[in-house]
Amino acid sequence: MAECRSPAAAFADRFDAASKGGALRLAELPFLTQVDIRVDPASPAAKDIGAALGMPLPVAPGTTVISGDVTVAWLGPDEWLVIGPEGYRFDLLRKALGERHGSVVDVSAQRTTLLVAGPRARDLLAHGCALDLHPTVFGLGRCAQTMLARAQVVLLPRQDGLLVLVRSSFAAYLAEWLLDAATEYLAPRL
């Protein structure tokens, strides 16, 4: 992907600088494979797609299933987002669906992935996210589509922070917003 350009590429240096204080780690994780799956969860096709993924499609709202470097996030009662590494073979998912009714769409470039991690990650996001981000409420294994500032996002908790998936056209806005929100966490505390 050397010749590709990711939506938040211009922010790499500022993300790095903001990550030096220890309170936060900000980074774009560019070029992840993202696949939107639509299928009846009760159908054999869903089961076959689960088999191809190596894990079942999660049916509980707001949950994810993670296996290795692939995450499957519930987006709706018949919609999931698969997030895998660059080069992930999503064509195998399409193959697993076959001719049956369903949808496997490459949306890798539709959103980019921002890592917001570090001890103050959840405090940072709470400036613009109305969800309860407390780790006991929104911990590993959860996911949510919601608003962060004025951008729609998918939030995926990670061990020490969260992944924020944002539409590519909103990425620069959200990066600016995150960096601005981080101002207070980057300097010595009051």
Partner: peptide, 18 residues
Amino acid sequence: GRDRGPLHDPVRVTALHD
């Protein structure tokens, strides 16, 4: 609050914006 200046309203840009 911080909803001022460039953060007042989201700006959406294409990949060719720069």
